[in-house]
Write a protein that binds this DNA or RNA. Structure first.
Length: 475
RNA sequence: GGUCCCAUCGUCUAGCGGUUAGGACACCGGCCUCUCACGUCGGUAACACGGGUUCGAGUCCCGUUGGGACCA
């Protein structure tokens, strides 16, 4: 087999969404698995809806996910001369023909067909009966200064078979297929035509795309035949659905790749989650990039659409969060701390802080959110917790603990624990009876990491200040 | 409306003619424990329906139903 060449061909009409990212990922993995080439092509022929911002967003998203492409990005708007020359060639060979039907006529015929409950298809008014009949027609029309659309002279008889690597053999009746418009009257080429011209020109061997394109595939295969080219392999991956089984869209929540970056997800986590949505390898859930490249095959891609499940993504993200090297995590969390308006602490201390929280947060945003009492001295008081924990009975033990901690040296977990033990013994208290008030005093709430850890990370000065302040709150 | 695709726990899925139908997320409970988590142990929960083929069907075939895509 010739060396594998795949492509991802997004239209830059918006950000890169979850579904597109998965398509890109499958193309990337398939190419890497076979030691092939992964190509990026921007399908921006719809000038109305394509924007430079969208192009930028797509490139950024792919880079963030580390789906690095080997060729491109190619832009279809820069390739119009190629499309034109291919239109001319088809015209010359009699495989396409000029059509002078006006939009009004076509619309009227369409309505009539609909009314008669027939399939609205082009009726073939301008279609030549024999291929050679129209040979000079286009040139003649041009001489007369008349504009026309160019239609593909598609075979009306027989069947076209798509041997799909995922869906299997799918047969279409050629009689169902229309005489596709290849170029509009202003000369601009149409979507299906550009795709085929580009895929031929770029020597694409495997087209892996959403199964919303499956119905377009027989038309494209017919075009390959008209160009006397062998069609590539096709693999149509099922779509991603929202919780209501409708195609995933904005109303299901965040769908853009960059939104997940901003919400504090890791690119590895998104990739890992996305690859498992529609593909599986036995019971394995977590895959490194190297494993994915080694193990990814089209045979293990499922045929049915899948529902996007944010909770599982969260779990995958949590997996990466808790198993990450602390130093790396510290660097990754810093921008999120800054974004919240906190000063970014010095790295060694930041790592200690993170170590106490990493098993309690599922995203970087959550981590920063839970770190408020480390990052700021303005305690967010949970009034219920204050009322429950900071009672007159604990005033003396708290005072005693403050004194003991003041003398604790070195100020580490082991020695802090000793200070607690001393006070606990003196008042005959269980650990919980002292730990909870201290927890509230230091963090403002009844929920936090282990109390010795919190004290050690906070340090002696801040701990004592907060105990002082809390004692003043006790009636 | 026409054409096409799809169908195993709520969700992602394993299964490729003979299984007590497995795993993961979520959910529920036990343990651990200074709170919350982590961890750990256990539990609830699925082959859409109806016909065939076969000694035997989640698995193969046909239909029905349901969902989805495309064409306009």
């Amino acid at each position: 087999m010739a060396s594998v060449r795949t492509r991802f061909a997004p239209s830059p009409t918006g950000y890169l969404h979850i579904g597109g990212a998965r398509t890109a990922l499958f193309n990337y993995l398939f190419a890497r698995h076979h030691g092939g080439t992964f190509i990026l092509r921007i399908e921006d022929t719809d000038r109305e809806r394509s924007t430079p911002q969208a192009i930028e967003a797509i490139l950024q998203s792919l880079k963030w996910l580390e789906l690095d492409w080997d060729e491109g990005p190619y832009f279809q708007t820069e390739r119009f001369p190629l499309y034109q020359s291919r239109v001319e060639w088809l015209l010359k060979e009699g495989r396409a023909y000029p059509c002078v039907c006006t939009p009004a006529e076509l619309e009227a015929k369409r309505q009539a067909a609909l009314k008669a409950r027939r399939k609205p298809m082009y009726d073939g008014t301008c279609r030549p009966r024999e291929a050679h009949e129209m040979a000079g027609r286009a040139a003649e029309l041009r001489r007369q200064g008349k504009s026309f659309t160019v239609r593909f002279r598609a075979p009306k008889e027989g069947k076209t078979t798509v041997d799909d690597k995922i869906k299997g053999v799918v047969v279409f009746d050629n009689g169902e297929l229309d005489d596709l418009v290849l170029a509009r009257s202003d000369g601009t080429p149409t979507y299906n035509f550009c795709v085929v011209v580009d895929d031929i020109d770029m020597k694409i061997t495997h087209i892996i795309r959403g199964d919303d394109h499956l119905a377009n595939t027989p038309r494209q295969i017919l075009l390959y035949q008209a160009f006397e080219k062998q069609p590539p392999e096709f693999a149509h991956v099922p779509l991603i659905l929202g919780i209501d089984k409708a195609r995933l869209s904005k109303r299901h929540g965040a769908t853009s790749v960059m939104a997940y970056k901003e919400m504090g997800y890791f690119p590895e986590a998104l990739v890992n989650y996305l690859v498992r949505l529609g593909w599986s390898h036995g019971d394995q859930e977590i895959f490194s990039r190297a494993e994915l490249i080694e193990k990814f095959t089209l045979e293990e891609v499922g045929k049915s659409a899948g529902v996007f499940n944010p909770e599982k993504l969260l779990w995958v993200n949590f997996h990466y969060l808790k198993s990450r090297p602390l130093g790396q995590l510290a660097e990754e969390v810093a921008p999120f701390i800054a974004a919240k308006g906190y000063p970014v602490p010095e790295k060694a201390w930041l790592e200690r802080m993170i170590a106490t929280l990493r098993e309690r947060a599922k995203t970087l945003v959550e981590l920063v959110d839970q770190a408020h009492y480390y990052l700021s001295d303005e305690i967010r008081w949970d009034e219920n917790a204050v009322r429950k924990a900071l009672t007159p009975e604990v005033k003396r033990p708290l005072e005693k603990l403050a004194r003991a901690l003041a003398e604790t040296e070195p100020f580490d977990e082991a020695h802090i624990k000793e200070a607690f033990a001393k006070v606990l013994g003196e008042f005959g208290l269980a650990l919980g009876a002292l730990a909870q008030p201290v927890r509230v005093a230091l963090t403002g709430s009844t929920v936090s990491p282990g109390i010795y850890e919190v004290i050690a990370v906070l340090g002696k000065k801040r701990t004592l200040e907060r105990l002082e302040a809390a004692l003043e709150k006790i009636p």
